[in-house]
Amino acid sequence: MNTELYNYTLKLADNNLILAQRLSEWTGHGPFLEEDLALTNVALDMFGNAKALLEYAAKLEGKGRTEDDLAFFRNERQFVNCLICEQGNGDYAKTILRQSFYDSFEFLLYTQLAKSKDETLAGVAQKSIKEITYHKRHSHSWVNRFGNGTEESKTRLQAAMNELWRFTGEFFETTEGDANLAKEGIAVEFSTLKTDWEKEIFALLQHANLVIPENAYMQTGGRKGIHTEHLGFLLSEMQVLPRMLPHAKW
């Protein structure tokens, strides 16, 4: 097995899987009907992307497992998503602000990944770009609305900022394995996306009148399977049924 490629694919997949799981908690509980459907759409796209990537990871693993085996039977220490994805949704300001950070990152990532020498990764990226373009448009316009809306929306957005900023450093962590894959033209090293991401996000923050918290200490660990306490609960809920009846097919 190409361990480096397997790990890289899991990193791509897990971000989408875990964040989509969080987003889907909003379905039926959104701030108004149209927006409920809009956010559900984003979750749907992200689950679809995660499924495609996990299918590929399972193939790379070469043990005859499926995408569902990887989603439902890995334990907490085997997930390699960024910590920001597993955080609780909080209020709509927190959910949207997180989404805006994530969508900018994904857009930059997949724009480059679309050129990958790995056919599968390039294919997934090309398909996802259209969806992510839309996601970013959605989340960024809401950040703008909140930042320029009412006193309450501004307060909530800044509170979300204070909570979430410390998780954004992790997006750009890189490893030797990723670097090797990048040299082969297969992977995009996440660290190479930081400058463009900051440029776009700082502009968004300025438009939305947001202040970056001082002395933010960037949290880390997710990419190595060292998670916050949130992930355990999230996985308990997500994985309960297949684990309860491990011989069943669904």
């Binding site: 908690e25 996990l54 669904w250």
Partner: peptide, 14 residues
């Protein structure tokens, strides 16, 4: 939705 037992089932239910 959060407990759908397969990725396909989750997509369909959503």
């Amino acid at each position: 939705i959060t407990r759908a037992p397969s990725l396909r089932a989750k997509l369909v239910l959503l």
